[in-house]
Amino acid sequence: MSRRSYDHYCAVSRALDLVGDRWSLLVVRELSAGPRRYSDLFADLPGISTDMLATRLKGLERDGVIIHRRNGMRSSYELTDTGRSLRPVLDALAAWGIPLLGDRTPTDAVRAHWLAFPLGRMVAAIVPEGTVTMHIGETVLHYVITAEGVTHHDGPAPSPDRELRLDLAEATEIATGARSLTSIV
């Protein structure tokens, strides 16, 4: 398949040439916490077709945003350094998009880990440096907070400085600003 381009001599345009297709940044979002198998990506991207997911993965791999690791019968996808450098972009998009969420409709899909970016800012406000394991229902992730910023990762931290437990409703209220994280901890 030939690559589409805006053909603008512009940094935003060139970035969008690589990650501006529908689903591309959501694939990057899914891989931000760590490697994932194809089946996990498909399960956590409701609405994407298998053909579209395969196309996006091939394109992101071709462009050096992700790498496909094969280990015998098992394989997974993960972000490259180039892909990881998109984290601040996703964080900024999450911050910009929070006011657009409004009330959840009955047809809205939701995954607890989709709240990781907005919750990261709230966690960093109460733990300026260190690690925090966050339980959102059955989902477990952890944050690493340093002077350089906040990253989130799958699973619990080996030795967290703090451990937080929220249900999905509480996590949503905190992520959207309807409730303060300090009211829970």
Rank of each mutant, 00 (worst) to 15 (best):
A54G: 13
W114Y: 06
A178D: 13
E173T: 01
R14N: 12
A147F: 00
S32Q: 00
E61K: 07
R22V: 10
T146I: 04
G47W: 04
Y6I: 12
D40I: 10
M52S: 14
A175Q: 09
A92M: 06
Y6S: 15
R62M: 08
A171Y: 02
E61G: 02
V132K: 01
R4W: 14
L57C: 02
A54C: 10
T172P: 00
L100T: 13
A33Y: 05
Y38Q: 09
R56W: 06
W23R: 03
R62P: 00
N71V: 03
T50N: 13
R14W: 10
D154V: 10
T131W: 01
S32I: 01
T133Q: 03
A175F: 07
G137C: 10
S39Q: 15
T182N: 13
P99S: 06
P160G: 02
L26A: 15
W96Q: 10
R87K: 09
G102P: 12
R22E: 14
T182A: 15
A95L: 05
D108C: 05
D21R: 15
I136F: 01
I145E: 05
V144P: 00
M52E: 15
P46G: 08
S180W: 05
L16N: 14
D17V: 04
E173M: 07
T182I: 14
V65N: 05
L141I: 13
T80L: 04
L25Q: 09
R162I: 08
Y77E: 05
D7F: 14
A54I: 07
S32T: 08
S13W: 06
R37F: 07
A43P: 01
A95N: 11
